[in-house]
Simulated assay, not measured.
Amino acid sequence: METSKGHSFANELSIMAVRLIRWLRAADTGSALSDPLTSAMAVIVHSGGIAPSALAELEQVRRPTITKVVDELVSRGLVRRERHATDGRATMVVATEEGLALWRAGQLRATAPLAERIEALDADELRRFEEALPLFARIMEPPAP
Rank of each mutant, 00 (worst) to 15 (best):
Arg138Tyr: 07
Ala90Val: 05
Asp122Trp: 04
Ser47Arg: 14
Val74Pro: 10
Val69Trp: 07
Leu24Tyr: 01
Ile44His: 03
Ala101Gln: 15
Ala144Leu: 06
Leu55Gly: 11
Leu133Ile: 11
Gly106Lys: 08
Leu114Ile: 04
Val18Arg: 07
Val45Glu: 02
Ala32Glu: 07
Leu133Trp: 11
Glu130Arg: 06
Pro145Thr: 05
Thr3Leu: 14
Ala26Gly: 01
Gly88Tyr: 12
Asn11Gly: 06
Met92Val: 06
Phe129Asp: 00
Met140Val: 07
Arg76Gln: 08
Glu97Gly: 09
Arg83Tyr: 07
Ala27Ser: 04
Arg25Met: 15
Glu12Ala: 11
Pro142Leu: 12
Thr67Trp: 08
Leu126Tyr: 03
Arg83Met: 12
Val69Glu: 10
Gln60Tyr: 00
Met41Ala: 13
Leu100Ile: 15
Leu73Thr: 13
Glu130Asp: 05
Ala105Val: 09
Ala85Asp: 12
Ala120Phe: 02
Ala40Gly: 06
Val69Phe: 04
Val74Tyr: 12
Leu78Trp: 09
Thr91Asn: 05
Asp124Gly: 01
His84Leu: 05
Ser8Met: 13
Val69Asp: 10
Val61Asn: 09
Arg117His: 06
Phe136Ile: 04
Glu57Phe: 14
Ser31Gly: 12
Glu98Trp: 08
Ile15Leu: 13
Glu2Thr: 13
Gly48Thr: 10
Asp35Met: 02
Leu133Ala: 12
Ser53Cys: 10
Asp28Arg: 08
Gln60Lys: 10
Leu135Gln: 09
Thr65Met: 11
Ala123Met: 00
Glu119Asp: 14
Val79Thr: 10
Val18Pro: 00
Pro64Trp: 08
Glu57Trp: 11
Val74Lys: 05
Trp103Met: 01
Pro113Lys: 07
Trp23Tyr: 08
Val93Pro: 05
Ile15Asp: 13
Asp122Cys: 04
